[in-house]
Simulated scan of single mutants.
Amino acid sequence: MTTSTPPDTPASAPPPAPRRSPGFDDLPALMSLMTGDEKHDAAATSTLDALWVLHDRVLRVSPDRPGDPGRDRFLLSKGHGPMAYYAVLAARGFLPADWLPGFGSYDSPLGHHPDRTLVPGVEIGSGSLGHGLPLAVGTALGLRARGRSGPRVWVLVGDAELDEGSNHEAIDFAGAAGLDRLHVLVIDNSSASHPLPGGAASRFTAAGWSALTVDGRDHEALYAAYTRPHPGRPHAVVARVEPKHA
């Protein structure tokens, strides 16, 4: 009786390695996909580290439920040069990376200023400087009126944007009202026309805010500043980066 030899059975393939979530080191490659007619490269790269640490380690908002009423709110007032913001949103799963190459094109949802009706995770349509901080104050007031004490409100502004009078009114009101769920992230690249002698943080502390100035490229310093307790007061973090003209 002849016994046939069974064909060789291939060894089981090893299980695929778990897919790695994009990290900070992936952001330059994501930004490089956006080749549209962008005139604010320095404005974009100045925010990259501060945006990443905030979205990766601090903000409580999920791409699976971007409209969750209990989410933290992030408002980008410094809306020009949004490439870093789009890259961070793609890395965090709010939008597909294959949207990025269309940046700035006629039919792309990724415009030269973010549009909250087109881009998941975007809270406001930003454009004119000086609007974001007052909108953040209104958002914090609205959450307080609804009895929502959990969500935090963050707004990113530029140092030159603080020249706008609307921001000074918002800073004074928020300090007097004790809006302790309100946080302002100032990207300071020495572009303000009227810089304060004591630095940007002095404007906030004069109005009763908690405020810190840190190296805007130091991730651990940024995280420590973002999470510093500030009971009963709004909080400002001034992130110093290289001057715009450098």
Rank of each mutant, 00 (worst) to 15 (best):
G178Q: 05
G121N: 02
D26S: 07
F74H: 15
V61M: 05
A207C: 14
M34I: 10
G79L: 03
D218I: 13
G121Y: 01
G216D: 07
A140I: 04
G102H: 02
P16H: 08
S190H: 09
D188W: 00
W154Y: 14
A225V: 05
A225M: 04
D41F: 12
A239E: 01
P10W: 00
R233M: 13
P7L: 13
R148T: 09
A236L: 04
G150W: 05
G102A: 13
P229S: 08
A160C: 13
R181Y: 03
L185M: 00
H40P: 04
S32W: 07
H80T: 06
H194G: 06
A236N: 11
D41K: 10
R144Q: 11
G121M: 02
D56R: 14
V137E: 00
H245I: 09
P243L: 02
A225W: 07
P101C: 01
V122S: 08
P151L: 01
V157I: 15
G79D: 10
P109W: 03
H113N: 15
H168Q: 14
K78E: 15
V53M: 07
A29D: 15
P243W: 03
P197E: 11
G199N: 10
L135D: 08
L222M: 09
L156K: 11
W154L: 05
T45Q: 09
G67K: 13
D26W: 03
F173I: 12
R60F: 05
S46K: 04
G232K: 07
L196Q: 15
L212N: 01
D37R: 15
G216V: 09
V184N: 05
M31V: 12
D180K: 02
H219M: 12
A160H: 13
P243M: 07
G130Y: 05
V153P: 06
T3Y: 08
L75D: 03
L143I: 01
A192M: 08
F24I: 13
S128P: 10
D49W: 03
P66Y: 12
E220Y: 04
G79Y: 04
G121D: 02
L196E: 15
S166A: 11
S62R: 04
A91R: 06
S77Y: 11
A201H: 15
Y106T: 13
N167L: 14
M31W: 12
G127R: 03
G208V: 03
L222K: 12
A200W: 05
L133K: 11
P120I: 04
G158V: 10
H80F: 02
